[in-house]
Design a protein around this nucleic acid. Sequence first.
DNA 1: AAGGTAGCCAACCGCGACTAC
DNA 2: GGTAGTCGCGGTTGGCTACCT
Length: 251
Amino acid sequence: MGRQPCCDKLGVKKGPWTAEEDKKLINFILTNGQCCWRAVPKLAGLRRCGKSCRLRWTNYLRPDLKRGLLNQAEEQLVIDLHARLGNRWSKIASKLPGRTDNEIKNHWNTHIKKKLIKMGIDPVTHEPLNNVEKDQKYSQSEEKHPQPEAADAPFTSSKETSYSPADQNSSSDDNNLYENDPLISCLFRDDPLQMDFPWEFPSSEEGLATFSASSWDPSCQWLLDCQDFGVHDFGFECFNDFGVVANRERE
DNA sequence: AAGGTAGCCAACCGCGACTAC
DNA sequence: GGTAGTCGCGGTTGGCTACCT
């Protein structure tokens, strides 16, 4: 016999999360850590699927999340990584601290894609749109993603090698394919990309605030983020408690 | 002011890989 | 070794908001 089903569809709530549900989930994770997602809803007293809990946590409630639009440097990095990896959003997100794959995917589809098209660059192949049209005429039976030429791809680095987004299905050969590119090879190590530029983002009324990615302190951002996702609805008392719990755990 | 449209984003769905039984 | 559950990922959708006519 296998395992039990992830959730018994009956009685499982769907749709937007309420402040109360968020509170329960946050409280549970901060107290118990991320364990088996299947068990989370039951243990946390939620009528949700474990899958839904995981998504809510990773995409919205995680204390180390950055809120707000991607800055220019992040956007450039996303474009660069997408040129090499294609739609492997989780891989791309793993190199952008505080950003989720969902967030990057949304940003790509709503902002970057349009920007690139406006600039005459095909967002799939990262080639100039004219070239893409020509390629499609010449080789309709060939691969969907022609190999980008380094000189023609304005958003790719000078260290361009022979991979393309078309390689995205060849997961087992990733290491071999990308080992010559420092940027890509770092994706297959556990450590996040060390960016030597500071994160810059507009802080409400003080112009630009800067902080370095390496000095990232989740506990600080956690407190700042409370305002961002409408924590007022939760009641601040509970978040004071979370802060205490989180700090205790760190000690 | 009201209705229509476009943009944005949180959340869901379905699939594949992995793994427990 | 086969079956079935879990997890994570990428694609898609639906609802809310802002903007336009």
